[in-house]
Every structure is written in structure tokens, then in C-alpha cells.
């Protein structure tokens, strides 16, 4: 059979020589290698104290965005839920009442917006599908909770803080 690469090596099946049978030179060589590794740079990242640098396209936990005036951008169009291959997103739409213009950007908004973080596969399709730039994936990751229901993130977990209230 023709080799796929020129790196193929035939397996050496010749019987062990006397020196190889003694094991000792091979063991000494191996111990030299392991000893060198003692002084090598450790691959471990001590997680909570040290954090690894993420790439700019890292997809962490989701956030729901607001516009400059602090109004929710989401209009509950449902495109993210449709795009979601894991079916992790559910939402309930509601109509904006008069006097709520400072809360919601458009006439329709999401009264309930839930992402099940245990179902989510962090593919980022929701982010791509969103026509209103409402959902983004942040750099936060590794959520923890004591109960499964704690992983169903509602609006209070997802919405970013109001920029207007922040400045006050």
C-alpha cells in the first residue's frame, strides 16, 4: 500500500538487544526526561485567580442589550428562538402601554425571556439572528448553581444594567 505521507516509519520488530533487555539505560533516559519536566513551565491556570486571555470572538453567557437611553432593545420577534438549535430560548411577547416608552424601544417587547443555560450550546446563532442587536454573548462563563432551575436565566439575569441609572 502506498503511504499517505513520507513520514511513515516501518515498525521495528527485531528482538531486543542485550542492552535493551537490561531496561536500565532506557529507564535512565526516561528519568532524565521526567526530571527535566519538573522545571518546565506549568500548563496549569489557577482558575479563579488567573484567567486565560480569551479571543475576541469568545462566546460566553448571553446578555440582553439596552440602547443608549436604557430602553430594552428586544422586540420579542422570536428569531433567536427559531435559530437556536438547542431550543434553549423561550419568550412571551407583550405590547408596550402608553407611558412605557422609556422602558421599551419599540411597540412590542419581551415580557418573559428565558434561556436555559443547561440546554444552550453557546453556538452564537441567536446573536447572529437578532435583527435588533438585542442579544449578545459576553465573556462571562462557567455559571454555577445549586439547582437546575437556577440555570434557567430570566430577564433579570440577562438584561445589562441601565446605562442611565449606572451614571447616577
Amino acid at each position: 500500500m502506498q503511504a499517505l505521507t513520507n513520514r511513515a516509519k516501518p515498525v521495528d520488530r527485531s528482538p531486543l538487544t542485550f542492552l535493551e533487555k537490561m531496561y536500565v539505560p532506557a529507564i535512565a533516559k526516561g528519568m532524565g526526561i521526567t526530571f527535566k519536566h519538573i522545571f518546565k513551565r506549568k500548563a496549569t491556570v489557577s482558575f479563579p485567580e488567573q484567567r486565560r486571555q480569551f479571543s475576541p470572538v469568545f462566546r460566553g453567557l448571553h446578555v440582553l442589550n439596552r440602547d443608549e437611553e436604557g430602553r430594552e432593545r428586544c422586540t420579542a420577534c422570536g428569531l433567536c428562538a427559531v435559530a437556536c438549535p438547542a431550543e434553549a430560548i423561550t419568550m412571551e411577547a407583550a405590547e408596550r402601554k402608553p407611558g412605557e416608552e422609556h422602558l421599551y424601544r419599540e411597540e412590542k417587547y419581551a415580557a418573559r425571556y428565558e434561556i436555559n443555560m443547561l440546554r444552550c450550546i453557546f453556538c452564537g446563532f441567536c446573536e447572529e439572528a437578532c435583527p435588533k442587536d438585542a442579544i449578545y454573548m459576553s465573556e462571562t462563563f462557567a455559571p454555577s448553581n445549586y439547582q437546575r432551575k437556577g440555570f434557567i436565566y430570566g430577564k433579570q439575569d440577562l438584561l445589562i444594567p441601565d446605562p442611565k441609572q449606572q451614571s447616577k
Binding site: T34, H37, I38, K40, R41, K42, A43, T44, S46
Partner: peptide, 13 residues
């Protein structure tokens, strides 16, 4: 600790 160092890890800390 020795096992960790040899395997490029930190060991219990």
C-alpha cells in the same frame, strides 16, 4: 506534588 511537577502541573495548592 512530584507527580504534578513531572506532568507539568502544579499539584495540590
Amino acid at each position: 506534588k512530584v507527580a504534578a511537577w513531572i506532568q507539568d502541573r502544579l499539584g495540590p495548592n
